[in-house]
Design a protein around this nucleic acid. Structure first.
Lengths: 325, 325
DNA sequence: CGGTTTCATGTAACCGGTTACATAGAAATG
DNA sequence: CATTTCTATGTAACCGGTTACATGAAACCG
């Protein structure tokens, strides 16, 4: 690979001049600029990003610290993040943590050693990642870390309300909410939204807690149908659980949506492939990822964010696990 | 951030000695080593990976150039790749190309400028990426690039045979294969496998070509059922298409697997969530990703691979879209 | 005991960019 | 025309590691 000194030699100028041409700063005479550009073309020269980073201390590298790319919600988020990062000239490093603290910490080290400019995090480890000790800008995505770390998520409380209202409005009277883990604020918010609606309407309901591990849920769901055969509306805390509920219901000969309505949450692409397709409260996943990156880049380049917290609206997507009208 | 010179100063030694301690090479007296290590701990020093890379010219960075992380097959592959890369001390950069040549080329530039040690590619652009011009080791995954670029994929020909044999063996007599795009060798191989079985058995069959774009497939699938209501076995070139077939069939009141058997391909995790769950020819996705990384690292570190081509066996996963027995 | 190894350590060049500072000539100013 | 200002360019230090080479001391050896 040609270096800047090769270019300088061929163009008959100093490396400083070549650098000025490359970065289009400082004064360079028009004719000199042309000679340098010709040399660059001849040698097919590309500046070494590593050398630049060493001096300038910005790498245009972004970390994405995420529990598991295999979870469809995160997959779609990652796609949005990569797209956006790329559009702004940043490169994305993917870090799967499986929610294991050691992995998260290890990846933070790796990102720091590689001089990453910033990091998007989806983590439950609130206490561990306060930005004092980090030395690298962070934006928290979907799960808050600390009040002084910028944070973006969908309006889960509203989402919980919408789900409950929709089930009621479409005629369900015996509701079940399979909520997400207690330690997840977002699950808690959906639950609260759901609760506030059903309490007000004085409707019969049951709450169950899922671990968000599909494997464990199968048993839980069967158990629910066993114990409460009379239920006619389920709000599942995410689409994957909704799908499991659908599968179990169909397997038991329950008609969906005639005898049982199901509403999922997230709005993953997959939801529409099922028969019947899953009605869901959709998060603006692409938008979340995109804005998270924009917030982070803002933080990196301007050293500040306009707003610390950003909450995006959710939207009901009516498909076929709820009744028409 | 502390530098190696800070550590040297605190420990009262030269930077060379600190470097020797860090890399555990050269001779360092036991007592000196302890003093240096104490200084490292005190300053919480972590070597700057960028500076290391600049001199050593290996970055321990791997690129994954992939059409779209949102495609579940690629998602699972990416997960395996990230896991494995991480286990070997490499960091993974994610690059979504949407199969657009300009994006692929652009990402290759980015990876080169960042001194990535190697790159895993899933691309159709055979002609463009010959490793002469690349200057960076490549392993082709799932889709071959060129005979001199190491390549790993599942045994798709065998997969096509297994799918056809299974449908026949379980009693289907009017087969349809919805194959993948012509420009994909892997789709071609599955098709050939299917063909070789049905031709030999003199079975009635029809072939249709899908673009692998779920949106377009809906029309195609409806059309198939319309024109050929008598079909009783479908081999779909991937699980997403199989799922669409299932949905369409159920929608039309066709019983699966009683009246119609469906076999998918890939073995994505999602397949088991459907009702009925999808019988599929599973690729060893995790293994593919893992071995691809191992081949690539081998290429990087040893400058060679034992074998240029690696073909992994597929496996029938019998679920509920095929009949028992 | 002198000569050769081996060990422990330091000095400084190097990787490939960027930029502060210096300088010479041209242009502007009074 | 002398002085100031501006333009174009070069020199060399710097970023933070690694390592070739040099050096002095200790260990070994016949």
């Amino acid at each position: 690979m040609a270096t800047i000194r090769d270019v300088a030699k061929l163009a008959g100028v100093s490396v400083a001049t070549v650098s000025r041409v490359l970065n289009n700063n400082g004064n360079v005479h028009k004719s000199t600029k042309e000679v340098v550009q010709a040399a660059i073309t001849t040698l097919n020269y590309r500046p070494n990003e590593i050398a630049r980073t060493l001096y300038k201390k910005n790498s245009r590298l972004l970390g994405l610290i995420i529990p598991d790319i295999t979870n469809p919600f995160f997959t779609e988020l990652a796609r949005a993040i990569e797209d956006t990062a790329h559009r702004y000239g940043y490169t994305m490093v993917l870090c799967n943590t499986d929610e294991i603290l050691e992995k998260e910490q290890h990846y933070m080290e790796v990102l720091k050693q590689r001089q990453a400019d910033g990091c998007l995090m989806i983590t439950n480890e609130k206490a561990t990642f306060l930005d004092e000790e980090l030395g690298i800008p962070i934006v928290a995505l979907d799960r808050p870390i600390h009040s002084h770390i910028p944070f973006i998520q969908a309006d889960h409380y509203q989402g919980g309300k919408i789900a409950a209202q929709t089930l009621l409005q479409k005629g369900s009277t015996q509701l079940v909410h399979i909520r997400g883990p207690k330690y997840l604020d977002s699950a808690e918010a959906r639950y609260q939204g759901f609760l506030d609606v059903v309490e007000k309407e004085k409707i019969s309901y049951h709450i169950f807690e899922s671990s968000f591990q599909p494997r464990n849920d199968e048993f839980l769901i069967n158990n629910i149908f066993e114990r409460f055969p009379e239920i006619d509306g389920v709000f599942a805390a995410n689409d994957v659980i909704a799908v499991s509920v659908l599968k179990t219901a169909l397997h038991r000969g329950i008609s969906v949506p005639e005898d049982l309505q199901i509403i999922g949450y997230d709005g993953i692409l997959f939801g529409q492939l099922f028969y019947p397709s899953i009605t869901t409260v959709a998060q603006p996943i692409y938008q979340l990822g995109k804005q998270a990156v924009q917030m982070l880049i803002n933080l990196i380049e301007k050293k500040e964010t306009e707003q610390k917290i950003c909450r995006l609206p959710v939207q009901l997507v009516e498909r076929d696990t709820t009744r028409k009208e």
